[in-house]
Design a protein around this nucleic acid. Sequence first.
RNA 1: CGGGAUGUAGCGCAGCCCGGUAGCGCGCUUCGUUCGGGACGAAGAGGCCGCAAGUUCGAAUCUUGUCAUCCCGACCA
Length: 490
Amino acid sequence: MAKELTTREENYSQWYNDLVIKADLAEQSAVRGCMVIKPYGYAIWEFMHDALDKMFKDTGHVNAYFPLFIPKSFFSREADHVEGFAKECAVVTHHRLMNDPNGNGVVVDPSAKLEEELIVRPTSETIIWDTYRNWIKSYRDLPILCNQWANVVRWEMRTRLFLRTAEFLWQEGHTAHATKEEAEAEAQKMLGVYTEFAEKWLAIPVYQGVKSANERFAGALNTYCIEAMMQDGKALQAGTSHFLGQNFAKAFDVKYLNKENKLDYVWATSWGVSTRLMGALIMSHSDDDGLVLPPHIAPIQVVIVPIYKSDDQRVAVNARCLELKSRLEAKGLRVKYDDRDTQKPGFKFHEWELKGVPVRLAIGPRDVEEGTAELARRDTMTKESLSIENIEGNVADLMDVIQKNLYQKALDYRNSHTYDVDNWEDFKAQIEKGGFVHAFWDGTTETELKIKEETKATLRFIPLDVKEETGVDVYSGKPAKMRVYYAKAY
RNA sequence: CGGGAUGUAGCGCAGCCCGGUAGCGCGCUUCGUUCGGGACGAAGAGGCCGCAAGUUCGAAUCUUGUCAUCCCGACCA
């Protein structure tokens, strides 16, 4: 039988699509630009959700929920914000259908036109700040540290499973603070949370940075980001945290009385990560045999495949498999016992490899006799026979080994695809080959845009811990004070 | 929204140039043999060829329109 996947060399886009669909994570929906997240894919998202939710709560945040529909007028309050989102909004104009008088099915009832159109949220800053106005009167009401788990809609021209769908799932944190310093600290703290999550849970190494003015979130004074490198040499923005200053407080008139009994505008942040992280996860670790999942986030960490010919063998192998399953589960491992009688072992091996299960145990009559099991690692694709004595302890330890190995592999890849470049020729050549290019920037939007125009590369970020250096801009030749990171991006 | 391509069985495709009423591989069903890396044989089920109009005795095939999808741009988490 032919290989399931297109190879990465043939066409990375197609490979990625194949991977998402064949590994049973998601599929294209009948609705333009949307996707159906299938149970296996959703299980991964649930692990992400739960881990992040706990981290948010540990940092003092609470969950709330705000409406899906936002009155159109809310968008005109913050000029930059509407500028940033106007082109990609879904708009509700009517509230009723009727039978077509000409008998052509159902049509929109023209008499049910809304007085004011409703926008399906592309993000919730506006409706949340309209609500916060009523919640905040005094410095005693601050800070407000709310998060929302929700779906949002952005009517993108071109979509791609997980990375850019018309509708996507995310969390958006929206906080309100009495001081600028506190808000700035909050935005940076949440960037730290995202960094830890990406690196510890998803095993994706990320750079922390600040966006240039040009790439900043619509309405923000500062946008912090984490950026990852995919296996095709393109960068992916994996999460953002915005310092919004007093822009939204001013737009929605959110003032509080401070300790000096003076009215002041509230300081704000917002931060979010989305199902795009699924895309990052898939593209960071997977290979031509399919998905590779880090153990911390894998819905199934160990799959047990029984091997037998006769009925006697089946009974004996089954008993051993069930025993191992419960021992592994007692160690807190997520185990799947694939006892389907309808597929052969070889088929199952390939199927679970395609789905990225970190460890497979195969148990046959020989193993039952000798007290062994065949253990196969997804990350290295190696197999070994080992004793079932304390196998649960060994497998549990192996989870950490695999988690670290995947992180290290991704880190090595990222580092070996990050280049210091000092002249324009090298810059162009390197960008063409992919990876991050670390080069001097004169600090102007003009240069940034010219570079984008000529190479398609965008200024991904200014490193959070950027050090002052003296040099000349790689493009303009003007004096520059720091190096920044450029890349082609998703 | 610009440029390119494609819509034929659940999936992947051939057939179209040169019109004659649809085929291959995988998958699916049944039976038998198999089972330590994607099994094999036999017999089956499944499609108004994206949609609409036109040309024709006759259209998957030719013409026009339309819709959808994918890829490359522009836009974006």
